[in-house]
Every structure is written in structure tokens, then in C-alpha cells.
Simulated assay, not measured.
Amino acid sequence: MNQTIDLLQNHRSIRKFKDQSLSKEQIKTIVKAAQSASTSSYYQAYTIIGITDSQLKAKLRQVSGQQYVEDNGHLFVFCADLNRMYQSQPEEIQEKMKDNIENTEFFMMSAIDGALAAQNAAIASESMGLGICYIGSLRNDINRVNDLLNLPQYVIPLFGMVVGIPDEDPDVKPRFDFDAIYHENQYGYQHEHVERFDQTTKQYYVDRSFNTKQDSWSQQVGRKLSNPIRMDVTDFVKNKGLNKR
């Protein structure tokens, strides 16, 4: 196994950082690595916003409810961005573009582009000895985040990513067995894979070095999804002109 594979398979989410900001050179390196990710048809349909204003960080932390959104080395917000392509064209071309810009395919494409860029940023950060954590909880109030970041039509915030020097050393969380995730030629769900993974996660939570508890993967999923979550996101996305067709 080479160093890259080892790095990937030892990923942990870091939620506690030392009080040291990333340098401009570190930020630039991370963003340029993100830009090197694959992108559909060379569209590069995403934007990355770095949050350096302390008051803005505090407001985003209020949306998230997570203190590490404020206390980190740097906060990135990854956005799906179809506005750049739209604004690059004269009005007569813009009108012709709308059927594409506003459909589900391009919504998915821009979200995928943003996610691919973010994963490159994560790997680059960890290769530099930094820790990262994705922040999906910025969508707890997606309209508020939209207003705080002054996002135009055809741009939506996907998630944040905090990066910094780790001030904790959490255990690596287990993942499903290979056969539960990889199927040949057709889909093949088998409940035995979930049952086996539930036993693995139960033991993980008992044995881990902090915050031990009695829980399993399927119990977590059932508990979290039994109540509606972020039901405002659908209308928000459509009001931004995306996923309408």
C-alpha cells in the first residue's frame, strides 16, 4: 500500500483545532488542488468562498450549531455555481441556456463538480498534516447562509469545510465491508451486510477512546431520519433557479 492509499484510508473528521490560521500559501495550495479535480465538460461549475471575517464566521456557526465552524484554521464554503457560465454569455445566448441551466441534470452536475473539488481539497489538506471536517449543517438554514454570502441566482451553498492543525486524535470510524458497497453488473442489497456492520459499529462505539456509547449504524439512520430534516432546501433550490425542469 502506498502513501496516498494509506492517507485516504486513515481519514478522520477533525472537530477540534489549534488556534492558528492557515497561511495564504496553504489556502492557495488547497484551492489549486481543488481546481485540479475532474469537472464535467470543463464547466468548473462551482465556487469556493473562504470565510475570514470573524463576525461572519460567528453567524455561520450559529446556523450550524457547531463551535468548530468558528474555531478553526480556515473555513471554506463550497457552492454549486451555474451563474458564472450564464453571465459569461450575451443575453440572446442566456435565454437559450435556461432550459439546461435550470434542469435537474445541470443541478446534479454542478453539485458533483463541487463535491469532487472539495474532496481534492480535503486530501490536499490532510497530505499537509492538516485536519478537515465537512460541514453539511450550514444547510440548517440555507436561506440565511445564502443571504450572508450574498449568493446570486443559480448559485447555492452545498456545504462548508473546516481545515486546521488538529488538536485531537480521534479513532478511524469503520466502513461497510467491500461486498456491501461494491456490486458487479447490478444492484445487490443484502441485509446481512447491514447486520454485520451494525455489530462492527456497536463494538467501535464501546471501544473508542472517547464518548463511548451503545449505538449502531442502522439505529442512527432510523433515529435521524424519523423526523423531517431541512425541508426548506427544496423550495430554496428551485427559487434560485435550479432543479426546476
Rank of each mutant, 00 (worst) to 15 (best):
F106Y: 11
V237W: 02
D141Y: 05
L22R: 07
K98C: 02
I165Q: 08
A37G: 04
Y46C: 03
N120Q: 07
L242V: 11
I14A: 01
L242D: 01
S226E: 09
M85E: 06
G114L: 07
I27P: 07
N72H: 12
I51W: 12
Q67I: 08
F178V: 00
A58E: 11
V163Y: 00
A33F: 04
S36V: 04
A58L: 14
A118D: 08
S64F: 03
R12D: 02
D167W: 09
D71F: 14
D147H: 06
L130F: 00
E184S: 06
Q62N: 06
T39V: 12
R144L: 04
A33D: 06
L7R: 15
K32M: 12
Q190E: 01
A115N: 04
Q20H: 08
L151Y: 14
Q220K: 03
Q190M: 08
G164L: 08
I142T: 02
F178G: 00
D19T: 07
Q20L: 11
R223H: 12
R223Y: 06
G131E: 04
N243M: 09
Q219K: 11
A33E: 00
V221I: 08
N10G: 07
Q44M: 04
I49Q: 09
Y189A: 04
F78M: 05
V69Y: 08
F17A: 05
Q190W: 13
N120T: 04
T234M: 11
P90W: 04
E192V: 01
L151K: 08
A33S: 08
F210E: 10
N120M: 01
L151E: 06
Q66D: 07
V221M: 02
L8H: 14
H183Y: 13
N120Y: 05
F107S: 03
I156R: 05
P228K: 04
N239A: 03
Y189C: 05
K98Y: 09
N83V: 09
Y154F: 09
R245F: 11
I93Q: 14
K98E: 03
L148H: 07
E105L: 09
G73D: 10
S209L: 15
D171Y: 03
D81I: 12
S38H: 15
L158A: 00
D167H: 03
D81Q: 09
Q55K: 13
D207I: 14
S23P: 11
K28N: 13
D169G: 11
Q62H: 13
A118S: 09
Q3I: 14
A111Y: 13
E91C: 05
V77M: 14
N72I: 03
Q55E: 14
Q55D: 14
Q9V: 12
Q44K: 09
V233K: 00
Q67C: 00
E126W: 13
H193N: 02
S54K: 15
N103A: 13
N150E: 14
Y134H: 01
N10T: 08
Q66W: 13
Q190K: 03
Q62A: 05
K240T: 01
L149E: 04
N143P: 03
L130A: 04
L130I: 01
D215S: 07
S64K: 00
F197M: 06
R139K: 04
Y134G: 05
A121H: 05
V221G: 01
T212C: 14
D71W: 10
R84W: 06
I30E: 01
R61P: 07
Q55L: 10
L149C: 10
I93H: 15
K16M: 02
A111K: 03
R223I: 12
C79F: 15
N2V: 02
G65Q: 06
G160A: 01
